[in-house]
Design a protein around this nucleic acid. Structure first.
Length: 287
DNA sequence: CCACAGGACGGCT
DNA sequence: AGCCGTCCTGTG
């Protein structure tokens, strides 16, 4: 374990609030000074921005520069992506203006799977609380500057949780889903490492859908927000359905909008960039 | 007291 | 294949 620092000057398409509050992650918390602190793998990371400059501090095992670049998707050219999307229509232009600093994080696949199983029919404050309690109970403790942080438990660590343990931590009816998914991952009935090697997004999606608690929406979130990083998916929740109806479909009853229609519309308009287009629209309309 | 939240699942038609 | 009730828990 070591402390490291990193300074990045004049970074474009990078805004802490946009990145951490757009619904893709649950383990970053804002501090009083405006900086954010989170746990990534076995590292505690603190980030603040002054103007367009990014200041990063970490305490952990991994090389900070390498970890930062990968986690924050720094190798992807968001300027070019935004330029492409802006050509589509005024909705995209406005949404990109609103969330110009969004980046899609490369979060640990296992952690993302469990996190989004927990997210089903749930709200963000509660999701964050549950994940925090799971980490505190089954993860490893990291102490930094007198504060205790906890890593997200590995499958081996989470295997020690009984259904009742999970229920007591507040998962509700999702307890069995997390319990069963943990077993399946441990048995390698579904090999998470091999999912990274598969090129066809739909094939990976079908694999994810085999996990208890992983339906269409959760699967797409996993594909988009984890190290799988497939941009050709379009997670549809009530908000996205609402936005797509308001902007493009104009159905009288937004609850009766066919999901397949939303998907084909997204595919037609945004193509292979539909995943990130979804994030701009979602963050914009949800405010 | 009830409605609802950033869905999944099972039973039904 | 589509529709619909139900599933914990916290908040309004």
């Amino acid at each position: 374990m070591k402390e490291q620092k990193l300074e990045l000057k004049n970074i474009k398409s990078f805004n802490l609030e946009h990145i951490f509050e757009c619904g893709q992650c649950f383990r970053w918390n804002k501090n009083e000074d405006g900086s954010y602190t989170g746990v990534v793998k076995k590292n505690v990371i603190n980030i603040k921005m002054i103007g367009k400059d990014v200041y990063v501090e970490s305490y952990g095992a991994d090389d900070l520069k390498e970890l930062f670049d990968y986690y924050f998707d720094m190798d992807r050219d968001y300027e070019t992506i935004k330029n492409e999307l802006q050509k589509i229509d005024s909705n995209m232009r406005r949404s990109i203006l609103y969330g110009e600093g969004i980046r899609l994080l490369n979060q640990d696949l296992w952690e993302t799977i469990i996190s989004f199983i927990i997210s089903a029919n749930n709200n963000i404050p509660r999701i964050k609380g549950i994940i925090e309690r799971i980490s505190k109970r089954f993860g490893d403790k990291i102490e930094w500057n007198g504060i205790q942080y906890y890593t997200f438990p590995t499958p081996e660590q989470l295997e020690k949780a009984s259904v009742q343990d999970l229920r007591n931590l507040g998962l509700g009816f999702r307890d069995v889903r997390v319990f069963e998914t943990t077993k399946i991952v441990l048995n390698k009935e579904i090999d998470l490492d091999k999912l990274h090697d598969e090129k066809n997004t739909q094939v990976v999606r079908e694999e994810l859908l085999k996990l208890p608690g992983v339906g269409p929406k959760v699967a797409d979130c996993i594909l988009l927000f984890s190290t799988l990083k497939r941009l050709d998916v379009f997670p549809i929740d009530v908000w996205v359905r609402r936005v797509m109806n308001e902007l493009y479909i104009h159905n009288e009853d937004e609850n009766k909008v066919d999901k397949k229609l939303v998907l084909s519309m997204a595919n037609e308009k945004f193509g292979n960039l539909q995943g990130i287009a979804q994030q701009y629209l979602f963050y914009w309309k949800r405010g």
